[in-house]
Design a protein around this nucleic acid. Structure first.
Lengths: 244, 244
DNA sequence: AGACTTTTAATTGTCTTACAATTGAAAACC
DNA sequence: GGTTTTCAATTGTAAGACAATTAAAAGTCT
């Protein structure tokens, strides 16, 4: 672990990089304790605030966690699926919100990926995910939900569908695609009629999944995709009209 | 912008969160300059090192960039696709390496997602991506590549395939799935015979894409998936034999 | 001896002050 | 007017101090 003080890069960046490399290469294992901040500052020949800035960088990526007190210190984090989901979702959401991605583009990506999960999900679906899906359908049907709540329930339904594939890596990749759409979906106002149609499709999907009919699931997802884009197009048309 | 000093959370975490929220909500716009560290420390009533730790957290997520000198400071970053790709890939790679994901699981996710791009790619493929694919095929055929180089070229080929769908959101999501497999793929030794088979499939894929034959692309990707898993299974069997 | 309490030492979190390095802009000069 | 110099603002880094936290060690009582 050495750094180059003459490099153009900031010291805290170099130190963070050095520790990151040590973690990735495996020379620092999960749950292993890093040297104390004082020791690190001696090792790298920098001040403690500089070491701390480096550690905060790593903490922001949840590569390490810190604990106070005797026998405290910085520890290498296991990157859990839950943690990775979170990072994935915030990055995806930010990417979409900052780059003026069209609704069509984001929606196309989302449904393409979701349809990829469908055949696997149809094959492996368990009672647990089917239950979650039906639970969300019930929410969407019975209760008087706001548009935001309806949208959140929609996301929960689709996540259950993805999870039904029983492939955590797939769930991880899809998390970003599905959740990041939520801010865009929130712009849509779901009328009573459109809700009925969406819930009906959700019903079909859950039934088809239970019957392990991958073709049917795919068809309904396609229809849901088409209909969602149609709804969004209506909203945009309305806005254009009102501003004209 | 206020924070709660009595909260159980660290001040630098709270400050980072406050600024992050301001960015996400849009009250801080892209390329806008944040107040100087001194001003922030007065505003939040904390010391400058604490503010700095907060800023480093944000910089680690590339939400901001800093510049020294007069008229320097911290600026809100636009999260570019390139930047997001990078974060996506490192997170995905770390997730796979730290969680003992089986080759089959990761491979299934990757090919399922890639096959989702195929129909769109077949429809929209441009000369540019076809060229890149053929270029990588040529590399894989002609030159004497190490296993790592062959593998890297393979990744480049598949990224070109994904990019052919002309949907940057899709490319972003796939970047993690494809690139994160590389460390796992690097464990495979590609014999002359297996290379010939893989390159033949790449050829078929490129041809089918040019002919806009989505069905054929899908079939070849399935075969590539099957063959890759078979190769990996051989390696694992060899290792088990040699250790027994 | 065993359970409970107190002390202690290690470690991170934060503050203060200071100086170095960088850089754009204003001022001075030719 | 153009060039150079100076300056001031800002981030980067350093050093030292104290507060807060926490686990372990030491002490104490039953």
């Amino acid at each position: 672990m050495k750094i180059d003080p003459s490099s153009s890069k900031d010291l805290s960046v170099q130190i963070a990089q050095a520790i990151r490399d040590a973690i990735i290469s495996g020379s620092l294992r999960v749950d292993e304790r890093l040297p104390s901040e004082t020791e690190l500052s001696e090792k790298f020949a920098v001040s403690r605030p500089t070491v701390r800035e480096a550690l905060k960088r790593l903490a922001a990526q949840s590569l390490i966690r810190t604990q106070r007190g005797a026998s405290g210190g910085a520890f290498v984090n296991r990157l859990t699926y839950e943690g990775a989901y979170g990072q994935q979702i915030t990055t995806s959401t930010l990417l979409l919100s900052m780059n003026a991605v069209s609704f069509e583009t984001a929606c196309e990506a989302r449904y393409a990926l979701e349809r990829a999960c469908a055949p696997i999900a149809a094959q492996r679906r368990k009672e647990e995910q089917l239950g979650k899906m039906r639970e969300q359908i019930a929410r969407q049907t019975a209760q008087a939900l706001s548009d935001e709540e309806f949208c959140a329930s929609d996301v929960a339904f689709h996540r259950a569908l993805v999870d039904a594939a029983c492939n955590p890596v797939l769930s991880y990749h899809l998390a970003g695609a599905v959740e990041a759409m939520q801010p865009l979906m929130n712009m849509i106002t779901f009328t009573a009629r459109s809700r009925i149609k969406i819930v009906a499709l959700h019903h079909n999907i859950a039934d088809a999944l239970e019957a392990q009919d991958a073709t049917m699931v795919d068809r309904d997802l396609q229809e849901l995709h088409r209909y969602t884009v149609e709804l969004a197009a209506d909203i945009i048309a309305q806005k254009t009209r009102s501003s004209a």
